[in-house]
Design a protein around this nucleic acid. Structure first.
Lengths: 205, 205
DNA sequence: CCTACCTTTGACCAGTCGGTCAAATAATGA
DNA sequence: TCATTATTTGACCGACTGGTCAAAGGTAGG
């Protein structure tokens, strides 16, 4: 009997092994994408046998989906927290710093997402044009309000959001290139200063 | 006798079929990455049989390498063309527009590169820390010169270059997400206006 | 026409893929 | 203790992987 097919409470072994598998799968999927990854790789990375993996998850796709679902929750949350009542420049800068910090602390999650999008978002396409679009449109309206009241400069809100995603995630997704070009020095300190400069100049009316 | 193993001039059939294969392989590799792509996929996309593919290219890796090598040439060229003697803001803006145009016209090439970097640059790692770093360092020195003479604002040159790459390539690499959020309208017109605004404000002293 | 080379392919190979299963092994609780 | 359940694994499956090969089908020049 597989642990997913009943509704008994999760044992300690189950909790531990499912976590181990998720970590291993994140490592592999974020590097090679769904199709480029194999169960044997993940099993080896997790220190478990392949049938043992499939005792905890019904399929390769199920592991991948669980990772992506967890990701989408945590990934889009910080944008939701942008407060329409707060100071516009501070709110946006806080979001920028938060996203940059996510790239620094969770580069694998960022790359997992990038891989999924590069491959045409076969698993999360609906969320993108559904809840994500909804949320972005909502925040774009908030930003448009800030513009209308003259609190920040007149910039396209959607592209402003894209530029925040792009600039911050770049340090995770293109980590290898950034490190190669910078020759080993840590990029994030200078990145934060640079991004602060960019968005301060851009948003100041 | 395979056409790569001698030095006779290329026949018309060879030229045509090698081009067909490159196009098909670009489509597949740029979507699924090297490991996620199969020769059968590429052969099917090219309308050729799998042994026929391997008549024109010695291996899957050889096709991939040829694509990447062609890419690196065309991809990094425009940065080289940035003229130290020209007007700084114009030169940088011209580069930004050029890169954005590349994202619009050659999104598959951009995604091929992105996939290679995401996977840790197993094929082009040396070029990144070799010739690419060299060239970027050179251009960063040029930009630093412009800053020193007060022609543009004081920004970190390396991160300025990263931000140009990141912002422009985002519209190719994350095309699916951008289209989903924008709901079908063409992103590039607004993107060009937005990026002009960003870099004008950033660079004006 | 013929011959020499170019091109294409069906059949095949060993290794790997995601996934199954029965049996063995550990943990748990009465 | 013993029986029940949870966990682990070796052996295995059919499908697919990158790649080979010999033979067949085209093509071009003399």
């Amino acid at each position: 009997m597989t642990p997913m097919s009943n509704s008994r409470p999760e044992t300690k072994i189950q909790a531990r092994n499912r976590a181990v598998i998720r970590t291993a799968a994140l490592q592999v999927f974020s590097t090679y994408g769904f199709r480029g990854s194999t169960l044997d790789q993940i099993a080896s990375e997790a220190g478990l046998s392949k049938p043992n993996l499939l005792y905890y998850f019904p399929s390769k796709e199920a592991i991948y989906r669980e990772l992506l679902e967890d990701l989408l929750e945590n990934w889009l949350d910080p944008l939701k927290e942008m407060d329409p009542g707060g100071d516009p420049v501070s709110e946006i800068m806080r979001y920028v710093r938060h996203k940059l910090e996510m790239s620094q602390k969770f580069p694998r999650e960022s790359r997992l997402f990038a891989n999924e999008i590069l491959q045409g978002a076969p698993q999360i396409g609906q969320e993108l044009s559904g809840s994500l679009k909804e949320m972005v449109d909502g925040k774009a309206a908030v930003i448009q309000g800030w513009i209308a009241s003259g609190k920040i400069a007149d910039v396209d809100p959607h592209h402003l959001i894209f530029s925040i995603w792009s600039l911050t995630q770049h340090y995770a997704d293109f980590e290898v290139q950034v490190n190669a070009v910078l020759g080993g020095q840590d990029p994030f300190e200078a990145a934060e200063a640079y991004l602060t400069q960019v968005f301060t100049k851009l948003l100041t009316p």
